[in-house]
Design a protein around this nucleic acid. Structure first.
Lengths: 232, 232
DNA sequence: ATCGGCAATATGTATGCACATATAACCCCT
DNA sequence: AGGGGTTATATGTGCATACATATTGCCGAT
């Protein structure tokens, strides 16, 4: 009669997960309420609550007040990708990170950049740089910085420090958006990444804001064969 | 002397976030311990704990027992992308989802597929299909299914139901991995996606397991101009 | 001076209770 | 039968307390 004890939210979490995977609670199935589970597992309701909350955040359970908890019909799996500094990303692969500033100017941005940032026709700081990993080209970076919001960046020696490193340390953003796509290498990208123009490149475009003020828009073109990978 | 009340973990969360953004607590800064914050905010330590835990999960705080809590030096922002069924993705864009099975066979997979799935030279179910959105080509899907693990799929009419829809309903996976990259369109991809061979395509490759047993490997080639976007 | 063990401390978590809140389900009235 | 208001219920959250656990840093022994 030694019913197994589930006295930590982790063990409850794992047991519920097991029942879902074992289809003891198939998709769409309503599961017992927290109070009953707490009794069954011999723990407090708060413990069950935490376990179920974590599973709901992972997309495996649907919870609604009064309606109860049920196993998600279409478990919308969520992939979480961390967005490190490129230097950290390179170092994490055991390679040496290099960085060369190719262009630094203040210019009126083209229409798509203006539209995305909403800064109108004012000149912005335009930076183009190349990141390398153990001397091999890694990422071609094309960035626009809203100097009206971060004027301090004008006084930074961006040949020594990457714009991104300076920005994360000095102009933290409150929110942003990120988009992933594929594009044919432009002439400049091909030259610096050591591939043929038209090669398929993995593109990351990121825009960040500090409250209502747009800070920066960056387009990263990764060298061919780059893969962004994560567990689900 | 009505000090503002922070009596819910959300308000505490927001206040701490504000202090981080306002650089009252700059990157690397050690913040007061939970007990002190609870006193300051006039709430229970558990409330502060939850607020800080959420911020730590978001990558904005680093927490270690005994060492305390500090503001992350390099806030590793995490982008969470949900991976819905393609049909749901299309419908969410307000378009009609279409699906055509192009090839269905049982064949010995090529070496890369064998390596990724670890199924050796045994024949697997090979499916090639095209997803459309309002009649425009959307995704070219190339999938291998381990029939040893999900034999039931042999009896399914996969011209009517997508393999993925059947699999999520009948062969839930415990874990998997997903990779994003860019590749030049192959001949078949170009034909069905209505683009030129060599066009840059956004590629998603996903492998899923049920415990130790590999279930399926799928390669999705999105039509040109596809962007995968999310907030950070 | 160095190493190993011990204690102090901050976070992590379980519990029992209370109350808040959303909402499904019921009842009543017309 | 239909519609609107009320109630019951499951989840969401807060609090006080207690104990667990990982570390840091101190202290003492060698």
């Amino acid at each position: 009669m030694t019913a197994p004890q589930f006295n930590s939210w982790q063990t409850v979490h794992d047991e519920v997960l097991r029942r879902i995977h074992a289809r003891e609670w198939p998709p769409g199935c309503a599961i017992p309420n927290e109070a009953d589970l707490a009794t069954e597992f011999g723990c407090a309701r708060a413990t069950v609550n935490r376990a179920l909350r974590v599973l709901a955040e992972a997309g495996l359970l649907d919870r609604r007040r009064r309606a109860g908890t049920r196993v998600a019909l279409h478990p919308v799996r969520k992939a979480t990708l961390s967005i490190p500094l490129i230097s950290a990303e390179v170092v994490a692969r055991g390679l040496r990170h290099g960085y060369t500033l190719l262009v630094r100017s203040e210019a009126r941005p083209p229409a798509p950049v203006r539209a995305q940032l909403g800064t109108g026709a004012r000149p912005l700081l335009h930076l183009i740089a190349l990141h390398t990993a153990d001397a091999a080209p890694y990422v071609f970076e094309d960035r626009w910085v809203n100097t009206a919001v971060v004027p301090g960046i004008r006084d930074v020696d961006l040949t020594q420090e990457t714009a991104n490193a300076w920005l994360v340390a000095n102009a933290p953003f409150t929110h942003g958006d990120i988009a992933f796509s594929a594009a044919a290498a432009t002439g400049a990208e091909a030259t610096h990444l050591g591939c043929r123009p038209g090669s398929a490149l993995f593109i990351v475009e990121r825009t960040t804001w500090n409250g209502p003020a747009p800070i920066t828009l960056v387009r990263l073109a990764y060298a061919p064969s780059y893969r962004m990978q994560t567990a689900i």
